[in-house]
Design a protein around this nucleic acid. Sequence first.
RNA 1: GCGAUUGUGGUGAAGUGGUUAACACAUCUGGCUGUGAACCAGACACGCGUGAGUUCGAUUCUCAUCAAUCGCCCCA
Length: 428
Amino acid sequence: MNYQIQRGTYDAYGDDAMNMKKIEETLSAIALTYGYVPIHIPTYEQTELFTRSVGESSDIVNKEMFSFVDKGGRNISLRPEMTAGVMRAIVTNKLYAQDLPLKFFYCGNVFRYERPQAGRYREFTQFGVECVGVSSYYLDAEAIMLGYNSLLMLGFPKVILKINTIGDSLSRENYKAALKEYFKPYKNTMCEDCQRRYDTNVLRILDCKSEEDQKIIANAPKIENYLTDSAKEYFQKIIKILDECQIEYEIDPNLVRGLDYYSQVVFEYHFVSDQGVNLGALGGGGHYDNLLHDVGGPSLSSVGLAFGLERINTLLKEIDPDCYEKTTVDIFVVHMGNETIEHAFYLASSLRNEGFTVDLTYENKNIGAQLKLATRKKASFALIVGENEIKEHTYGVKNLLTQEQVNVAYEDLVDYFDEHLMEEHHEG
RNA sequence: GCGAUUGUGGUGAAGUGGUUAACACAUCUGGCUGUGAACCAGACACGCGUGAGUUCGAUUCUCAUCAAUCGCCCCA
């Protein structure tokens, strides 16, 4: 029986898995500098949490959730995103009673039952931040910049930041009504999707790819004419801050995000490689006002964003395949078999205790094969342990890059490696 | 959920309705039982994604199924 890996999932190992870890570490470190602290939440919640918060009209909840009934008869869903879980955690732990805003960052796997494509998986990893409890355009701007700078820091040569406002709820109601009014006469001539959107979420019609429909959309009412004064001002303040900080952005009036809970400012980060590889949004987020309240907490506004780590990873590799440190070993211990293996074993242990990365084989391979193995494992040095060496307490140390070999006394080994590995790292 | 393309060893890849499925790289063994190379000899697909059907016979034909890639939808 051969077990097949599940559709839309993947295995990562070695350097690949290492890269994912690196990205997470980098993002965490940056979030920390913005005053965010880690939060850990469960992988599954009761289904209703998601239908309430993410929105029943959204595709994510509608048709993409991994839902099941557990042995206790509870309706459970694997998290399709993290924000809802964070809100729930804030409510169950009454964290809103602490100093606001609460600033949390998280990294974890999320699940969406979708058709897989390049850069799209059914189980994927999101890194994100949520800043909860204070409504301030400074905080929104801060979050946008956090995401923008993170991508630059990770090694993206440039980032396309798309930004838009969908207004406060009053603006949005008025605008939606105007759109419905406008599209009404065209409804039957538009594509099937748009006809559906007309009823479920008119805003999404603006996003339509059909050329025919775009002609109609071009003359549709614009959100800016329906924004309340305060919503307009709010957005302009954010734009001004981005200008001040010389963050490049493009205002995309058709940018409407799929999660129902957003209001005011929404944004996405994109990148297209020189080879033309475009994986869609690398990350996105926005401001939300009612989510915490909907989940049973007080009414507090927040801003959040999330990145897709897999997309970031594949794009970074596209840009520069060598952008990550590879897994390496400092010292590979080579022995002559038999009695020397035992000596090699203890030698390796003591060097590991000194903090070196040490590897060796316990098979009886000849010296050539062992050196070859050492090279394959990207070892810096080979430490040769034979009967003569054991007798004289002096070992052959071969630099696998320069092929130079010297004899080093047992007592001097640690110092020798300290010194020479340091050099290597500086050069690297 | 819809449409298109694809599916041969660890990797890249050729090929055919019929005895041993090319070739290359990688790997392993021996020549060389203390130094990463080269060379020489040899090994390496329980069988061509999985299942069923057609056939005297299928990896090659048909159907189903699964998966990957791309587009739509949606999103990270």
